[in-house]
Design a binder for these strands. Structure first.
Length: 283
DNA sequence: TTTACAGCAGGTGGGTTGTT
DNA sequence: AACAACCCACCTGCTGTAAA
């Protein structure tokens, strides 16, 4: 059977999408995102008419993302009524295994961070590289937060502006509040850059002129912040560029995380910005 | 008091255009 | 070719309001 299957293209690297081979259990299950059972002439290709194929999609239990399918194929005359249940059981086992690995990974991460957590007072999160929460204290959060990255602040509901600190297999995320400020120094030279000082860590990153302009405007607006309309007026001279203003702030927020708050647009609480002009004579 | 709905603000993926 | 800037379309979430 395996030799005969090889002649059909049941080999590593083969493409079994509907677009390539027409109706088939694998490609159709991927397209429909549902279990599919095909017998004999229900296949599009004639050389598959002596086969049955039963396919069941497998999803990531954490995100719901479609990962692939389990397919059971064989001679059409040997199709057993329980084959569909077998494929379904395989799917359940795979998804359960993925979930168990995920939980074990988070538990190992939590255990490895225990010494650090014991020495930490106040709210703290331990998350993996994708933002899945292994431990939270102080403030309840969901199962997942935005994925942390080096030299990147992020906003966590209930925590405010946070700067992640690298752990061996994950991140320690603590809010910056009270005496723990995020200090920004915006250099409005011909190549604008932003110096970020958060606790013991500091870094500098280049920003576009437009983003530098937005940061300077939000700094000038103070805690009251600016509406998208006001930002459009300040950036473009009229209020007809709301979409462009929103898009630019959205991209700025993606770069700088929780440093820029919304509703209205403003610098987040705990963020202090100073503006310098690196180029001599630059206004 | 609850629910459904509309309107609005804001977020974001992707396309286009202009510049370097 | 790569990048920045701009724009559009579509989506989500919040809020106010009317109806049940």
């Amino acid at each position: 059977m395996r030799r005969r299957a090889d002649t059909l293209g049941f080999t590593e690297g083969a493409v079994w999408t509907e677009a390539q081979v027409g109706t088939n259990a694998i490609g159709t299950a991927l397209a429909e995102v549902a279990p599919v059972e095909l017998l004999s002439g229900e296949h599009f290709e004639q050389d598959q008419h002596t086969w049955y194929c039963t396919a069941c999609p497998v999803h990531d239990p954490r995100t719901g993302d479609l990962l692939g399918v389990i397919d059971i194929s064989g001679p059409a005359l040997t199709l057993h009524p329980a084959i569909g249940a077998l494929a379904e059981t395989g799917r359940r086992l795979m998804e359960a295994q993925i979930w168990r690995c995920h939980q074990e990974h988070l538990e190992r991460l939590r255990q490895s961070a225990e010494p650090l957590l014991a020495a930490t007072s106040g709210p703290a999160l331990v998350v993996d590289d994708h933002g899945w929460v292994a431990h939270s204290s102080g403030v309840a959060v969901g199962a997942r937060i935005p994925a942390p990255a080096a030299r990147q602040t992020l906003a966590v509901p209930g925590y405010g502006v946070c700067v992640p600190e690298r752990l061996p297999n994950g991140w320690l995320v603590r809010p910056y509040s009270g005496g723990r400020k995020v200090l920004l120094e915006l250099d409005l030279s011909s190549a604008p850059s932003l110096q970020v000082q958060a606790g013991d860590t500091a870094w500098r990153r280049l920003v576009t002129k437009r983003h530098a302009e937005i940061l300077a405007l939000l700094h000038r607006a103070g805690p009251a912040g600016m509406s998208a309309e006001a930002l459009s007026q300040a950036l473009f001279g009229d209020t007809g560029h709301l979409i462009a203003a929103r898009a630019e702030v959205s991209r700025l927020r993606r770069q700088l995380g929780g440093i820029v708050a919304t509703r209205p647009y403003r610098l987040a609480d705990g963020v202090r910005l100073t503006v310098t002009h690196g180029d001599a004579g630059e206004p």
